[in-house]
Every structure is written in C-alpha cells, then in structure tokens.
Write a protein that binds this DNA or RNA. Structure first.
Length: 623
RNA sequence: CGGGGCGUGGCGCAGCCUGGUUUAGCGCGUCGGUUUUGGGAACCGAAGGUCGGUGGUUCGAAUCCACUCGCCCCGACCA
C-alpha cells in the first residue's frame, strides 16, 4: 500500500516511462491503492469541510438536462473533461468506492475471483472473435509506434477468453468465476445525459466458465441473485427484464432496469404476473382481425400524392391502417430486404436484427430503394417481388384484402391476399409492443415504461470459446468448448440512478449504504467556542465509533452550510446551535424524512448509530 | 451520419440583427475589510475576460463573411 514511498519505485517509474513527478507517485501507487482501500474505517485526520474539495454550485450549468447530471455537478462531485468523459471529484469517488466495495463483497460471496485486466488490447484478440468488424466505430482504435493496431477495451470477453484458453485445460479446473472492476471505452455516437451514456466508464464485468449448460444455468442464477443483492443494497428499485443479446451473442439474457425517465430504454411490464421485457424483446397479444373476402387478384388503383399510411387512410377508396401493409426496405448482411408490417404497427429494428442474426442493419437509402423496386418510399409493396428477401411480421399472417403500394409512384394495390400474392420468406415477431396490449403470459394489460439499464447478464454459451478455441478435456478425455456466461454492471449508472430515484428540490438524498459520508456535524456558528468544541467532540466520538463523518467547520452562515449539506445529500446532520446547546441538546436531522429532533448531547452518538443501523437494515438485501 | 442550438471572467446571462459611445456590461460566486451568524447576509473596496480558434472584409470587428474546433439537444445508432 505504500509503494509510492519507496524511492526506487518512484524513480524507476519516472525515468523509464517519462511521466512527471505527480503521476510518478500519486498516480502510480496511491491511485491503484485507492481501488483496494476499505471504506468506512477511517480514523485518521479529521474530515473538515473547510479543507475538503467540494465545489458546489448555486446554478445549474446550462448543458445539464437530467437530474443526476445537474446534481452531480452542483454538488461538486463531477466535472466534464470532454463529451462523454467525466472527472470524479472526491465526494463522487467515495460513492463509487462504496459501490465497488458492495460489488466486491457480493461477487466474492458467490465465489468470484477478482482480476485486473488491461484496458489496452491488441487488435488480434478482437479479430479472432470477429468483433473487430462488428464493433466498428464504437471501438476506440489506435496504433502503437510500430504501427500495430490496438484498441481500448469496450468489454473483456476476448481477453478473459484468451486467458481461459491458455490456462484452463481440464474439466477439473471448472467452474471458474472471474470478475474485475475496470474502465471501459466506447466511442458512443452520441454521449448524453451526463454520466449515463458516456465514452469512458467503470464496469464490473464477470465471466463464468463451466463444463456444461447446467453449470452455466447455476452460474447465471448465482449472478442474478448477487445482482439483486447488490441493487437492493444500493437502494435502487429495479425490474429484471428479458433482453436482446445484441452484439454479445448468446442464448439468454436479462437486464436490470431502473424505472426512470432519464433512461433511454423502454420496457413492457405486466403488473399482474410480473412479466417484464425490454421492448427489443417484448411480446404481446393483440386482437386478431377478420378480413372480408377480397377480389381474386390484387387491383391497382391510382393514389396521387399518397405517401404515408395516414394519407391512404384518408384517401377515398383507401384503407384503414390495420388493413394496410407497410413495406420497409432494410440493408443488412450485404443485401437489401423487404420488411412488412401492419400499417398501424411499428418495426423494432433490434427484433429484426436478432431475427436475422446480424448485428448491423440500416434503412435503405432512397436511391437503393428506387433502383431495387422502381418506386419511392410511399408507393412500395412486396406483391410480385422476386430476388429480395421478404420478412413479414406475424400480425400479417393469413391477412387478406389488404392494401399496399404498387411499386409504381402514385399507385397502390387493394385486395392483396398475403399468402396468395406475396412470397414471404420468413415470419417473425418484429413489432414494438405498445401500452395497453395483452401480456403474452397472462393476458392482462401491459404498460410501457422508460428505464435505465444498470446491469445485464448473458448466457454466452460457447460462442467465444469456439471462435477463440477455449476448450477443456472432459471426463472422457474429449476436447469440449467451455460454456461461458458474461455479467456486467455500470458503476456510474448505479450512482446516477441512485440520484434519479432519491432526490428532492434541495438536492441528493443518498441511500445510507452509498452516501459519501453518513453524517455531517454542523455547528451553527464555528466562532462560538462552546459550539465549536462540542462539534469537534461529537465529530471525534462519531469517528471513533467507526461512523463516516464530515465536520462542517466553515465560517459560513448556517443557511449556507444547511443548503450544502442538503445538496450533497448526507443522510444525517447533527446541528449544534446556541440555544439548544445551553440546555445540553443538539439536533439530529434526517435528510430523507426531513425531520429534526432534539437529542441530548451525551446520547447523540448512540442515536446516530441507531439511525444508521435502521437505514442499513432497510437497505439490507431481501435474499 | 441527418436536423437544431450554443461558445462573452468560476456559474448563469445581456450585448451581435442595425460594426464605432463599451474602458465589453449585469446577477451570483471569488478576494480584502467592517458589521453579522438557525435555511444560500448587508455595506465598503478589489481582482478576474486573447468575446472558442484561424483567416478575411473594413479606417475600425464580440458584432459582418469563410473555414475550423468544441459543447448541448432531437433523430439515427448503441451494452
């Protein structure tokens, strides 16, 4: 823990790597140690607000929109360095350390072993897994001085797999549960929402290695339980939802979602049976439509200036949206394809990509579309189309007498019988579920809510072990691919969602478990000896009791100190004022309850301890 | 990548359209002093700005033009 004081170490670091004195000592040793420093037992130098770096702001910076971003800035916890890149100041770092401490305890609790892998990767391992191409511009690429291609790690399946394939040879070594808490780099197309979608962030990522599917099932369930304990302990309310596995691959995945409008995902949830799924995955039941018999063949009719579903609904001789076929053109896997939806339904692109098993799809460009179909969007249809893949949403199955574009500008077809007139290659659930539709499990009504992803667990299976050759010998001496799982948690997102869920007009209301400090001791007037001395004494006693306490010894007016304490969100405040102190009393305020009560000075320590215990009890994991 | 917006002391903004009367202002914050001390004090005094950058137009540019960098929002995309 004290490498920084060993001259040889500092000297070596400085000369061999050419880094300055500051990084040589502070960064080289202490910053690393900070990851491992246990939080909460500090009994050293007094934590005095007057000396503590907490640059609070009165006004909201103009470019902060979401609450967590505004409050993190105003509370003097974070500062932006670049778009999607944030510096964490001491208060925020304490919160993050407390969160990572909980992560460690729960990962260790299910047998996890902590690693620390490089953030800088050779291109090679990503080429092997095939994700160098798939990740594309989302990955930060660079070259070393020899010109070799490298990248900054977006995630660590590849690196962990490369260790596993070299070192794991026998089934006797399995199962393994490996994890780390590491910085990830993703060159987001659009960083946003403060610390919620960023380009550099801390992730707890875990990987399990098993011989068989059954082992993976157990590992997956253990992780799921650990995740529930973690988020319970962090004071978050969340939903566990079925999710798409996207570019991670794998067979099954669940996301842990905090219900907040600051999130960018949408989830469908059933309050009755508990069904919950990301809209990228959610299914629903919708009433079936009975069509009247139509003509024996499609009938073309002129529709001047009709370009949209709505236009055609209003057009004389048109059709209601539910009797229209929406024809979308997508490009993916090197080819154009037609995607058919009911007129009033919306395509979910992730469902389409998942159905096709490809990662990158995009809408066709107007020129491509015109070249392929001879018409522009607004007049497209699939009737008689040959040579293009045609994928249709299940809601269109066995529909008759439908109306769709004629692939001739300003003309549509009516009387289309899908089974008879369109060569559908693949039927799939492609539509986005909407509020109020039927739960696929119990038929109750689904609601659709905005949510923020804070964790995601995947059953990877053998995707990476096969492409990267990570195998072991089983009991019969046969070489088999290792069955893997992958499990991630966004550390800053826990911090930010805790704020999204716990704040009031005055500022943050930290859950006791992750609060930067548990108590702040505030003398109303630091210049009055009695108040000052009492505050110092209470501070010492609390500190000695192992409580995380901050002493607000600033020579400020009380209002300033109260406002800052509220803004920063410290759960408890002991206030020492002149009148009450004269009768041997101090005040104990709960930030969350916004309640203040008088407490005799000589029992304040035990009262504080009791309040903390009660809060920790409230946040104790339920399983 | 498409669309929109914004860069003026630490934070929030005005000034720009209609170039010079501005020594570039205002509120908050900061520093010094005095009086204060239970919910962001009052008064006095002070510091702090290459007006994002470069180039141009002009007698003269924060202001007009071109290019460029950065940031934010919506969409696309994304763990």
């Amino acid at each position: 823990m004290h490498f920084g004081r060993i001259p040889a170490f500092v000297g070596t670091a400085r000369f061999s790597q050419g880094i300055g004195p500051a990084s040589g000592s502070a960064c080289g040793a202490e910053a690393v140690c900070a990851w491992f420093r246990p939080v909460g037992k500090g009994k050293r130098a007094a934590m005095r607000w007057s000396r503590y770096f907490v640059p609070t702001l009165r006004d909201n910076p103009a470019d902060a929109e979401v609450v967590s971003h505004q409050l993190l800035l105003r509370a003097g916890m974070v500062r932006q360095l670049a778009s999607g890149v944030y510096s964490f100041l001491p208060l925020a770092w304490r919160v993050l350390l407390k969160i990572t401490q909980i992560l460690r305890e729960e990962m260790d609790g299910i047998g996890g072993q902590e690693f620390h892998l490089p953030a800088l990767h050779p291109a090679e391992v990503w080429r092997e897994s095939g994700r160098w191409e798939i990740m594309g511009d989302n990955m930060f690429h660079l070259r070393d001085r020899k010109g070799a291609e490298m990248c900054l790690g977006m995630t660590h399946e590849e690196v962990f797999s490369s260790i596993a394939r070299k070192e794991l040879r026998s089934y006797k070594q399995l199962p393994q549960i490996w994890y780390q808490i590491q910085t990830k780099f993703r060159d987001e197309p659009r960083p946003r929402s403060g610390v919620l979608r960023v380009r550099e962030f801390i992730m707890k990522d875990a990987y399990t290695f098993d011989l068989e599917r059954s082992g993976l099932d157990k590992a997956f369930n253990d992780q799921r339980t650990a995740y529930r304990r973690i988020f319970d302990r962090c004071g978050l309310q969340y939903a566990i939802v079925h999710a798409s596995s996207g570019t991670m691959g794998g067979s099954e995945s669940s996301e842990f979602m905090v219900l907040t409008d600051a999130g960018e995902d949408h989830i469908a949830i059933c309050s009755d049976c508990g069904y919950a799924a990301n809209l990228e995955k959610a299914a629903s039941k919708i009433p079936s439509v009975t069509d009247e018999a139509g003509p024996s063949a499609p009938v073309k009719f002129p529709t001047p200036n009709v370009r949209t579903i709505d236009d055609l609904e209003d057009f004389p001789g048109g059709a209601p949206a539910r009797s229209q076929i929406k024809t979308l053109v997508y490009f993916g896997d090197g080819q154009l394809m037609l995607v058919l939806m009911r007129g009033d339904h919306e395509l979910n692109e992730t469902k389409l990509a998942d159905t096709l098993g490809i990662s990158a799809i995009r809408p066709g460009h107007p020129e491509e579309i015109r070249e392929a179909l001879g018409a522009s969007p607004g007049s497209l249809g699939a009737v008689g189309v040959e040579g293009l893949r045609i994928i249709a949403d299940r809601a269109l199955e066995s529909r008759k007498n439908m109306t769709t574009g004629a692939n001739e500008d300003d003309f549509h077809l009516r009387g289309v019988d899908i089974a008879r007139d369109i060569r559908v290659e693949l039927w799939a659930d492609l539509r986005s579920v909407r509020e109020g539709e039927g739960c696929p499990v119990c038929d109750e009504r689904l609601s659709v809510r905005r949510a923020l992803e804070i964790g995601h667990i995947f059953k990877l299976g053998t995707k990476y072990s096969e492409t990267m050759g990570a195998t072991v010998l089983n009991e019969e001496g046969k070489e088999v691919p290792i069955v893997m799982g992958s499990y991630g948690i966004g550390v800053e997102r826990i911090m930010a969602s805790a704020i999204e869920l716990n704040h009031d007009p005055d500022g943050i209301v930290w859950p006791m478990t992750i609060a930067p400090y548990q108590v702040v001791v505030t003398p109303v007037n630091i210049n009055q000896a009695a108040q000052r001395e009492t505050a110092e004494a209470i501070y010492r006693d609390l500190s000695a009791a192992g409580i995380e306490v901050l002493l607000d010894d600033r020579d400020e007016r009380p209002g300033v100190k109260f406002k800052d304490a509220d803004l920063v969100g410290i759960p408890l405040r002991v206030t020492i004022g002149p009148k009450k102190l004269a009768s041997g009393q101090v005040e104990l305020t709960s930030r969350r309850a916004r309640e203040t009560r008088d407490v005799p000075r000589d029992v304040v320590i035990s009262e504080v301890r009791r309040e903390i215990s009660a809060e920790l009890e409230r946040l104790a994991p339920k399983l």
